[in-house]
Structure formats: structure tokens, C-alpha cells
Amino acid sequence: MVFLSQLGPMAEFALFSAIKVAAVIAVTLFMVSYLVFAERKIAAAVQDRLGPNRVGPFGLLQPLADAVKALLKEEFTPANVRVVYYWLAPVIVMVPSLLVIAVIPFGSQLGAQKMVIADLNVGILYTFGIASLGVYGIVLAGYGSNSKYPFIGGLRAGAQMISYEVAMTLSVVPAFMLVGDLNLSAVVEHQAGGVLRWLAIQQPLAFLIFLATAFAETNRLPFDMPEAEQELAGGYNVEYSSIKFALFFMAEYANMIAVSAMIVTLFLGGWTLPWFGLDLPAQEGEWLKGLVHLGIFLAKVILLLLFFVWVRWMWPRLRYDQLMGLAWKRLVPLAAANIVITALWLWWRA
């Protein structure tokens, strides 16, 4: 600890940021692998099957086996792809989902450290900016593969993401009008003091629209048009194999985690719980409380993830034109109307 007190403020910031980054990435990737496992187990339970149960007790080591398999598979590049884009695409898909998590406050305080990697005062703008980069990876994969099914998948992804981005962004505006700040930590503070303060309760319409668009953003059933195995044979990832395919696969789940973390922060009170004074940040020295906050946040995220998984096995896929219709004819007007109503209400209250 002597060593710590000798550090200058700059060096201390760099050190703790690095630790936080490493920890968050480790936790996220661990969650990705076990989320896949959970998905397979839950799917099996829904469908009266057993699911993976051969590797380790209850199949718990399956993610490990999957990872080894993906890494050791032959690295194959089809003959007619546009090589640079083809290689770049999986990376571009993976990175944004990790970057989004940087501004999410995943706890209150541990010791003197705020539990957020970058406490940006325009956090939400950053989030949307980065999150929308993810689609470039998919569009590039579709273009770089130089093949028809991936191309259609890429185009669908482009159109879908743009449409749903609009609805998603519009849907959170009323929430921020209530909070009066774009900083995500401020959003969490606003929701302290009882379940009724949660934005999911105060802004149910915004919450539901955001939830629906989140499924589209993560390319999950019922909105997995760009993949659409039964129509496009896998869409943008048809030409990919081994670790490059695994990156697309992991990106989907990392995206789910990022989006769940966002929903928890924006609408479900972040790391707070309205009982036992857990809605107030931990003070310096309250290590236990800080840890409990971390646990609360993780638990909320996991519950939401399980909801994502459950929905996938309960719904058939929508058709592409139905999906676009839903975005532009239902969600966007609803979200816009919600803004106007909230504004009117705030104006009347003032």
C-alpha cells in the first residue's frame, strides 16, 4: 500500500483504469461463454431435451471445449473474398460491444474508486455512437464475403440497425428529460429511493420500446433477419469459419450483455436496490456494501439475459418487411409521441 500512496494522480488513474478494464473484459468474456452454455441448457429445457452434458459435471466445461474447438479449427479463407474487409469484419463486430460497457456504472464505489471505467458526462451519446458502429462489421462481412447470401444479410443488417437505432434513441429521450442529465451515473442516482423511482415504472412506454429495439440491435430472434439460417443459410457469416466465425458468435452475446447492462442502468435502477439503504452509494471503507452493489448489478444483468434467451425459444422469426414496418410504423411514432407527452407533462408540472 505504500507503493500506492507514492503514485502521482495520473499514474494512479492509469493503474486503476487498467485494472478495471482488465476485470471488466475478463468478466464479460466469461459471461459470454457461460451465456452460450446457459442458452443451450435453457433451450434444451424448453424443448424437452438434455442439452450439453458430456464435458465436465453437468456439461459445465462445454464452453471451454467450444473455445478450444474454434481456435484449433482450420483457418480458411474462401477464394473470392475481398480479403481485407473479410478479415476486418469480425474484429469490428466484436470491439464496439466491449467499448459500450466502458461507460456503464457497474457498481457504486470500492474503496476510493468509482465503479465505472469512464465517467463521461455525455455517456449515453457515447453509447449510441459506439453501439451503432457494430453494424459496420456486419455490413462489411456481407460485402467482403463477395457472395449473395451474406450480401443480402449485410444489407438487411444495415437497414434493420438504422431503423431500430432511430426508435431506440427516440425512446430514451423522455427518460433523460426526467433525469435532466446525460451522465449514466446521474441516471442511476435519479432512480434511487424506491422502485417507483425506476425509469421502467416512470416511463413504461420508453422501457418497452427500448426492450423491443434491443432485440433488433442484438440480432436475436425474433429479429435475427441478417442471419436467418432458414432463409439466408446464416446470412453475413456464411463464408466464415473457425475463430472468425466464433468472433461473430461471441459478439452477438457480448452485445446482449452490453445492451442488458444499458437497460439495467437506464431503466432498472442500475446497481441500486430500494431496501436496506442499498440505493445510496457506498462510502470509502464500506467494502462490503460496494461488493453487494456489484452483485446487485450483475444479478440484474443476468436476469435480463435469461429473459433474452427465453424469448428466443418462444417466438418464430418475423419477416423482413414486417420488421421494418414495426420499426417505422409503430415504434418510431410511439417513441416520438412519448417525447411530446413527457415534454407537455414536465411543462405543466413546472
Binding site: 433451450a43 424443448q47 424437452d48 431435451r49 430472434l221 439460417e229 418462444m314 417466438w315 418464430p316 422469426r317
Partner: peptide
């Protein structure tokens, strides 16, 4: 048919 419209749960149930 359920599988084709992306509804694998009913696909599995029908096969069971």
C-alpha cells in the same frame, strides 16, 4: 414448418 419460420421449440416438440 415451424423450423422454417424460426420457431425451433415447436420443431423439437413435434419431433418428440
Amino acid at each position: 414448418a415451424c423450423h422454417i419460420v424460426g420457431f425451433d421449440t415447436l420443431f423439437m416438440q413435434a419431433f418428440r
